[in-house]
Structures are given as C-alpha cells and as structure tokens.
Design a protein around this nucleic acid. Structure first.
Lengths: 215, 215
DNA sequence: GACAAACACGAGTGGTCGCTCGCATTCTTA
DNA sequence: TAAGAATGCGAGCGACCACTCGTGTTTGTC
C-alpha cells in the first residue's frame, strides 16, 4: 500500500496566480527582513490575502522558501545554464572570468532574494541542506572549469582555489548589491580584478598573460 | 534636575563573577546559534543560573550583546591596537599584509563570537549601529595604511580598494573558521595570496615586487 | 441550476520568548 | 549580630508567531 500518498490537488488558474503572487510577496519580504524575521502574516499582507489563504497553497513557512528557491534555481539555469560549463583553455582567463562574473551579477541584481536566501545564516534545516547541495554543485563546476587552466596544481589545491573564488564572489556580491549605478559598476570591476589577479599566477604557462585593465 | 539618572549599583565580587560567567555563556550561545535565535533562557541555562538572575545584571537581551561586543573590542585593542597603524612604505607589502592577516585571524580564531556578532545579519538596531561605527573605523584605518603604498590612485579609488580588502578578509575568515589544523593554515595562506595579488599591481613603482610564495 | 471542489477569510490556538515579580538567601557594614 | 543591600530563584505575564478551522464565496462540470 502507498505510504501517506500526496494527492495532487487540482489547481484552478486563480490558484496558480495566487501562488505566483504569494511567492513574489515572499521574495519582497525575505529580501528586506531575511527568512527568520519574515512572518507568514507579513507575506500574506504583502500579497493582499489572509493568512488562511496562504496556507491553502503552502503547508508551512519553510515550503514557501523551498518553492521560491527552486523556482529561482530553475530560472537561473534557464538563463545561464552553461555559465559554468568547461571552456576551451585557449580562451584567455580574463574573458572567461569576466563573462561568468557578469552573468552571475546580472542575475543576482535582478533577483536579490537569491542572495538573501542563499547567504542568510538563519535559514532552518531543510533549506540549509538544499543550499549545501547547490553550493557543492557550484564548487564542483568551478573546479571543472578551472582544471584545464590550472594544470600544474594537485586536485586538492584546485578545490581550495574554487572555494576561495566562490567566497570572494559572494563577498563582492554583497558590496555590489549595496550600491547602484556607476558606483556599482566600479565594484563589479574590482571584483573581476580580485579574481583575475588571484587566478592569473596559477595558470599553467601558456601564451597570453592577462594584462591590467582600467575602469 | 537630572533626567532619569542611572544610579551605579554597587556590585559585589560575586556579581562581577556572575557577569563574566553570563557573558561567557552568551558568547557560546551566540556563536552556535547567532544573536536572534539565542534565547535569554538558554544563556541563563548555559551559565547555570535562572532567567531572573540574568536580568539582575542586564536590562535586556540587547545589553548582553553590547557589553560583550564592547569587551571584545577592548580586548582586541589591548592585544593588537597598532595592527592597522600606518607603516613605513619601504616595508614590502607582503610583510605588512601577512602580519595584519595573521593578527586578525589569530584573534578571530580565539574569539569566534566576534565574527558571529559582527557578521550576523540579524542583529537589531543599536548593535548594528555600533558595528557600522567599528566597520567605518576599520575601513578608515585600512585606507590610511594603504595610502602610502597606493600613491598613484585617487582617494575615492583607495576607499574602494579598502572596502574590497575588508570584504575579502571577511569572506576568507568565514572559510578559515570552518576549518581546523593544516587545512585552516592552507586557507590562511590562500587569503594572503588573494589580498597580495590584488594589491601588488596597485602599488606605486618602487623596488621589490612581491614574488610568489608556496605553502 | 445543482453539486462538488477549490478558493478565501480572519478570529482563534498552542507554543515560544523576552522579561517581571514576589520572595528567599547571602553578603556587607556598622 | 542586626539591618539593609545585593544576589538568586522560577513560575508566570504579555506579545508575537506559525498555523488551524469553521464558515462563506467562486469556479468548473453535468
């Protein structure tokens, strides 16, 4: 016999719209207050519905964050699915780093919730697990991307380099999200500089060292 | 007439001991759960006293964090007060960065609460202000330290560089605190590498570029 | 139009947390 | 040693929050 079967409730189009509305409201509230401090009543109010209506579509608060996170990941992969795919190591590292940073920054600026949900230290068990999985995946991809460039380094060290790149990116992202306009652009350039100068001395000896670039 | 005067309650030595005990307990709880999730009852339990006793010495939860933060800053300044003081720009940047990173890492490893309190995104108003002040001070100091080295750059850009250095340090610290032993040391070296390679191309042309260093 | 299912409401429930209060105990001081 | 202050206790209060439930409304289907 089936164990506690999940009967797939038939949604009406009104329901689908409500769900989208609630997730949008949740994104707004999570972004401004973080996950833990965000109350489900506040999310419902932001969406213009009653608390009861919210629980018509989500079994609990955690499920909102999980669904939101899932949709964000899907949206990201649809837009930049190949961002971290391995590339021809003959391409200058500068171009690779620039392209990847630009894509990630672009997405994170358009969807600031993503950072709030991923970087928040207050998210509870289940979400933290999802984040861990995603984090490990990204690290693996960075590692695979860097390997052809960092031919002289042992695998263990490449892992470390990937971890450091990820951490530096996250730190830069926080600075960047707190700024706007030209100031933001300047910090994006600085982030690229940090990563490039960090990685450049590590690449195996091939033609084309990366020269300095100005703003 | 005096406005709502604070009468300085005479403490017995027993009381001073309790305060130290409570702050130590608070440090433990804050470190493991963060400020918001830490309950005052949990802090009292950790210290082996009743909730009422806790409130004999602190007017509210915020005051605990503020007192703890104040003592940590004082402790830090006593140990490394001159860590960010300007130095002779003839000294190689590598030595300067190495020394500063070592000192900060050393302190943060011995007192992990410091990072938890400073980096936590969930700390309420009053504490956030204190952190802002401290953060601005540190940025200023870094700026003053870097200026003699980065002679070719306008002030505005040096500010940006200081901000980036601080953010990179914080990111590295998070990686480092999550590791132990030889692994930790390796990440400390990586952090130094990131900062050095980022700053090295910026220093005005003088003798002594910074060569690569191994683990 | 009739019926059922999905949707919507919002006061209410149980639980947690910051904090209080009345009272007991220990220390200081004269 | 006696008075008063400091310390200590822990049940409990009020506020807030995640979540529920009884009831009423809208929508899809025959």
């Amino acid at each position: 016999m089936p164990t506690s079967q999940e009967q797939p409730r038939r949604r009406q189009s009104r329901g689908e719209r409500r769900i989208a509305q609630l997730l949008e409201a949740a994104a707004t509230v999570f972004t401004s207050t973080g996950y833990t401090a965000a109350s489900t009543n506040a999310i419902a109010r932001e969406a213009g519905v009653s608390p009861g209506t919210l629980y018509q579509f989500f079994p609990n608060k955690e499920a909102i964050a999980i669904e939101l996170g899932g949709r964000l990941v899907a949206e990201y992969q649809a837009a930049y699915g190949e961002a971290l795919a391995p590339v021809d190591p003959a391409i200058p590292l500068e171009m690779v780093v620039n392209a990847i940073v630009d894509q990630f920054i672009d997405f994170n600026c358009r969807r600031p919730v993503f950072f709030a949900l991923m970087h928040g230290p207050d998210v509870p068990g289940r979400i933290a697990e999802e984040h861990d999985v995603l984090h490990k995946t990204v690290i693996d991809r960075i590692q695979g991307l860097l390997s052809p460039f960092l031919t002289d380094l042992p695998a263990e060290e490449i892992t470390r380099v990937a971890q450091v790149c990820m951490a530096v990116y996250m730190a830069g992202l926080e600075l960047i999200l707190a700024r706007e306009g030209a100031d933001r652009e300047a910090y994006v350039q600085e982030l690229k500089n940090v990563l490039l100068r960090y990685l450049d001395p590590l690449v195996g000896d091939r033609l084309g060292g990366t020269p300095e670039q100005g703003p």
